[in-house]
């Protein structure tokens, strides 16, 4: 092994080879994931909102909602609206990445009641 190193370059510590190998693997892995994402056919955001829990709060009640993006493209400024009886509540999420999920909460007055949630719109990032 020592024969293969040139006389001009001093021997490299084993640790250096290990770290260098790690760097190569990490970089190639990250690039591989991104290339994989790049060669996928375009898939616009496809957002769903699902009520995961309704819990009482000090004033009224809170509905916890999970917003999922089934598409591969990222959606920005995602608006989520919830209805319970005659009441509506809404919030905006900065980003929901492709194939990602985000949890939001909507607050309503009164006693806990069933909530219907839906995504009303978003913009391209």
């Amino acid at each position: 092994m020592a024969d293969s190193s040139k006389s001009s370059t001093p021997g490299h510590p084993v640790l250096q080879w290990i770290m260098a190998g790690l760097g190569l693997v990490l970089t190639l892995a990250a690039a591989g994931v991104i290339v994989h994402a790049a060669i996928q056919p375009p898939s616009p955001p496809d957002l769903t909102a699902e009520v995961t829990a309704v819990r009482p709060a000090s004033s009224g009640f809170v509905a916890e909602i999970e917003v999922r993006n089934l598409g591969r493209d990222t959606a920005a400024a995602v608006q989520v609206e919830g209805r319970s009886g005659g009441q509506t509540a809404s919030t905006t999420i900065d980003y929901v990445p492709g194939k990602g999920r985000t949890a939001v909460a909507l607050a309503f007055p009164g006693a806990p009641a069933p909530v219907e949630a839906r995504v009303t719109g978003w913009s391209e990032p």
């Binding site: 250096q16 770290m19 260098a20 190998g21 790690l22 760097g23 190569l24 990490l26 970089t27 990250a30």
Partner: peptide
């Protein structure tokens, strides 16, 4: 370069 990238990623 490879070590620096490893350090950067970590």
């Amino acid at each position: 370069v490879a070590v620096a990238l490893a350090v950067g990623f970590i």
